[in-house]
């Protein structure tokens, strides 16, 4: 119980620090939201002086000293009121985040789970059959693909599977004339559109799980209890899965918890390449447009979910491995 209380205290402290940083960091970026809006307009040609005044009036760019802003911000965070977005004026930040979140949660979430399960299984197999083809193929491929940058893989898939072979749509999360709903047709359409971004993330993240699992598993295989189990004549599969893998999975489980926490942040580069309307794309828009309210809400959501995931993993660890409780 004391362990749990200590962890909760730590969580609250980190949360406060994150919330505070989240307020100050965007404000340290040079240029104001109006500057960003003007810079965007200036790409189409010189901007008239009157436009600047109108944009300032419209956005209602924050006034008052920084301390008052901070206090107001803390109040808003507690009531989950993040205000109006500058970029997508006059939409509210909460509305934008809630529209983008399901796309990211489903697409990135499913891929993260698939990658973890598949990667861990392949890692177990590789360690058990180490030195054979079943080891070298996934290990080598994994090392290779996990070094690919997201956007590079994304562009390759986009080009070959999207344009040359035309097997998959190249952008968006659903067909041009579709409106999001929960009909089976729409879900099938959305799944079809999610294939390329999902495969991109799968390719680049799978290797990490394989290598992580394989390496800890090989260590575990050298332990006495594994030899003892083998000497007792247990079936190889039982030894591999019930004894070695179960003990070796701990580090991968930590990674998985953190990865799940990070899912809400989306996958900025992949979403950008495929114009996928998720949180990553929203974050990209927020940052490039100096959209403080939107940035704050997104960063807050990402930090909180990573912190909470971290907390859950910590707590789980306390039960899985009693040594950490001390």
């Amino acid at each position: 119980m004391r362990y749990l209380l200590r962890k909760i205290g730590l969580l609250l402290l980190t949360l406060w620090a994150a919330v505070t940083l989240n307020f100050f960091l965007p404000r340290m970026m040079p240029g104001s939201p109006t500057d960003a809006a003007i810079a965007k307009l200036a790409q189409n040609g010189p901007v008239s002086p009157a436009t600047r005044a109108a944009i300032e009036a419209q956005l209602g760019v924050p006034t008052g000293n920084i301390w008052d802003q901070y206090v107001a911000y803390l109040g808003n965070v507690l009531t989950l009121d993040f205000g109006i977005s500058y970029t997508f004026f006059p939409q509210s930040v909460s509305e934008l985040v809630l529209t983008a979140l399901p796309w990211t949660l489903v697409m990135v979430g499913v891929v993260t789970i698939v990658a973890f399960v598949l990667g861990t299984l392949l890692g177990v197999l590789a360690a058990w059959k180490r030195g054979t083809f079943l080891d070298s193929l996934p290990t080598l491929t994994g090392t290779f693909t996990s070094a690919f940058p997201y956007f590079w893989t994304a562009l390759l898939l986009l080009f070959f599977l999207g344009y040359v072979l035309q097997w998959f749509p190249t952008s968006g999360a659903y067909s041009p004339r579709a409106t999001p709903n929960l009909s089976p047709e729409f879900i099938a359409d959305a799944a079809y559109h999610a294939v390329l971004p999902a495969v991109t993330i799968l390719i680049t993240s799978l290797g990490g799980w394989i290598l992580g699992m394989r390496n800890t598993m090989i260590n575990t295989l050298g332990d006495d209890y594994v030899t003892f189990a083998e000497a007792n004549g247990l079936k190889p599969r039982a030894v591999a899965l019930k004894y070695a893998a179960r003990n070796a999975i701990l580090p991968n489980l930590t990674g998985f918890g953190l990865a799940l926490g990070g899912v809400v942040g989306g996958s900025l580069l992949v979403e950008r390449v495929f114009a996928y309307p998720g949180v990553g794309y929203l974050l990209y828009n927020a940052v490039t447009n100096q959209d403080f309210p939107l940035m704050q809400a997104l960063f807050l959501m990402i930090t909180v979910s990573v912190l909470v995931a971290n907390f859950i993993v910590d707590v789980l660890y306390g039960y899985l491995d009693p040594r950490t409780r001390r």
Partner: peptide, 21 residues
């Protein structure tokens, strides 16, 4: 600088030579 910062530097005269249109 990033576009928003560029815009700010241009408007404030905080430059020696600046590209502009």
């Amino acid at each position: 600088p990033q576009p928003a910062a560029y815009q700010q530097e241009l408007q404030n005269g905080n430059f020696q030579l600046s590209m502009g249109s």
